[in-house]
């Protein structure tokens, strides 16, 4: 797209995340030894990154647009349980178990979006409300339908092949999905005209509306995208692991936000990139999993993630300032 000089690379939003990713990859390759670089070692973080990455990109879109969605933490297990209950507990065709959670995701996204545009309450609070409400509802309905908080499910081969299998026994099929979805999202944000709307909305919502951008519809659309993405991952996990639990998924709230922020997205909106979010997700996944390949106490992993987040935010602030103050070389 742009001239690829060193200086123009330094001004891109994903630069901090790229440097962070390279750093942690080298760090854990040194301290994690040969096993970390083996196919199994790579799979350990790549699988985590794929599950997280599919959710992190739409969460990042919302952040670029000036909103937050933490309800993904309840959406994922709710979708998982929906698949488990429909196609596992009641044995209905898997296609219903695939489509129903996605429809549920769309409904939750619509509710989030409508509440945000109608009430003007910050989306952090709105989605915190739907996070708890949805978590409570899934627990209640799981016990109501199945008398337990989990459901076993055996999906037919075709469904497993598409949504829940291991390639070569180690890499989840979700890795392929993640790559494909990232490419589509890249097109949407950076190449299509709609991407411009997302940035404009996060930069200055009132000006964006004055410029004729349908900010309400776009906001609702982005909330639907993040909820449906979380349900997709939840549904795939149920099919992959042959079971669904009510309690799985809370970790995705913070992990997705960390990936997005490490990836160079500005928390207050208006700045960020898909490539940055992908790098941020990989960085997070390497730190999260790499610790198991080292001799360090694994309790230190959160300490490293915390420190990494702070360093990343400071680095990204610096890179953003460089981008802002950039001018072409003055003519002599």
């Amino acid at each position: 797209m742009e001239k690829l000089g060193i200086d123009s690379l330094l001004r891109r939003p994903e630069m901090g995340a790229f440097l962070g990713m390279v750093f942690v990859a080298i760090f854990f390759s040194i301290f994690g030894g040969i096993l970390f670089m083996s196919p199994q070692g790579i799979a350990s973080w790549l699988n985590v990154a794929a599950n997280l990455g599919i959710i992190a990109i739409p969460v990042g879109f919302l952040m670029i647009a000036g909103e937050l969605d933490i309800s993904v933490g309840a959406m994922l297990p709710a979708a998982s349980m929906t698949t488990g209950i429909i196609s596992g507990h009641y044995g209905l065709p898997i296609i219903i178990g695939i489509l129903a959670p996605l429809a549920l995701g769309a409904v939750v996204g619509l509710i989030n979006g409508f509440l945000v545009i109608r009430t003007n309450v910050p989306s952090l609070i709105i989605t915190m409300g739907t996070l708890f409400a949805l978590a409570g509802l899934s627990l209640f309905l799981s016990v109501y339908f199945t008398n337990t908080t989990s459901a076993a499910i055996t999906a037919p081969d075709w469904a497993k092949a598409i949504f829940g299998s291991f390639i070569g026994g180690t890499y989840q099929i979700l890795v392929i999905w993640w790559i494909a979805i990232s490419i589509i999202h890249f097109y949407f944000l950076h190449l299509s005209p709609w991407g411009n709307w997302v940035y404009a909305m996060g930069g200055d919502k009132i000006s964006a509306r004055n410029a004729g951008i349908p900010t309400d519809r776009l906001t609702i659309g982005l909330f639907v995208l993040s909820s449906v993405s979380a349900s997709f991952v939840g549904m795939c996990q149920a099919i992959l692991f042959n079971s669904a639990q009510v309690s799985a998924g809370q970790s995705y709230i913070f992990n997705s936000i960390i990936s997005v922020v490490v990836g160079g997205v500005l928390l207050t909106g208006g700045f960020g990139s898909v490539v940055g979010i992908v790098f941020g997700t990989i960085t997070f996944a390497i730190v999260n999993q790499g610790i198991y390949f080292t001799n360090f106490d694994r309790n230190l992993s959160s300490l490293i993630i915390g420190a990494m987040l702070l360093i990343a935010v400071l680095a990204n602030n610096t890179f953003r300032k460089m981008a802002l103050s950039y001018t072409r070389k003055k003519k002599a």
Binding site: P193, N196, W197, Y199, A200, G203, D204, I206, S207, A208, N210, A211, G212, I213, L266, G270, F271, R320, L324
Partner: peptide
């Protein structure tokens, strides 16, 4: 056209992108 202070310009967007918000050339 009403122009408020800095209205219709977006700090973290490029000049080209900011100029065409809502009427993007494709």
């Amino acid at each position: 056209a009403t122009v408020h202070q800095f209205g219709g310009t977006f700090a973290l967007m490029s000049i080209g992108r900011s100029f065409f918000v809502g009427v993007e050339p494709t």
